[in-house]
Amino acid sequence: MIILFKATVTGVLLACLELRQRPEADLVFACDPKEGETKLKMTYPTAEIIRVGFNSKVDNQQLAKRVFPDGWHRITNFDSPPLNYIELVLRHRKCNPAELVRLLHGCEGEVDGLYCGKERLYKRYYRYMCEVKNNYHRLCMFVRPVCGDTVLYVNVTPKNHVSDMLCRWLAVRNPDRAVIVVGGKFAYVCNGEILKMQHFLKTSVDSIQHLIPSEDSANPEELWDTYYKSQMIDNRRNHSLSKRLQPRGDSGYSTMSKKDRYFVERGIPTSTLLDFVNEKQGGQ
């Protein structure tokens, strides 16, 4: 018996419910039915198949309550609720959706297993969730989009699949601009109605290439440098703290953040060549 499920939150929850009925079943996941059929043909050509999550329109919240009937009182407002947990984990580059379904199944209906599971697998997936969250948060901090007249554009290569989340986040901040986020092979467009498209769209990069602004309509990088330097208090320099807060790995998302990181590393020079020239002229 094979459970073929779509690697989405709904698919994972439905597969978990099916696995509860048939614990001996094998799990196969796919992003779309075509991929699923190919996988099945290669590995289980003759097995009995149950397909879940490809055409279902169900309430995920209700599904989550069925998968986890107990332990909701142990989740606080500060934890990611199970649906967010699953969604975030699915975005991790190393996530194996079949493993995730087995993990959910292994919780035996106790929701706090997700957060406080003792076994290595539970800890690993909890760590995945934190890494994705962190990755998204750092992107929100350090990306600097190119600002066209009607479009904000950013090209990112995040470690995990969070480009669409970034796109939505930028769109909420800038409701009067269309936002294009290119992450790898795909481009995400949000506030697409400004460009006479759907509100949110996942498409190929080629199809929206003509919409991408080549340079900033107003380039505030020099102004930002001036501002950034003006905020420095010399006698409070804290090298280790600032390096930790502005990590090198994540500051590479944009040239502006890279430059900020450089100042964190090297400090801000207090005298410039211009000062030197002025001093010389003053001396003469």
Partner: peptide, 25 residues
């Protein structure tokens, strides 16, 4: 801007840069 550098002020949301003194900008 230098005139306000000692003013601490922040909103509990996303920080976008940190100064060499470790303060969030």
């Amino acid at each position: 801007s230098s005139g306000t550098k000692y003013d601490s002020c922040n909103q509990s949301a996303v920080c976008h840069a940190f100064g060499p003194d470790g303060r969030c900008i």
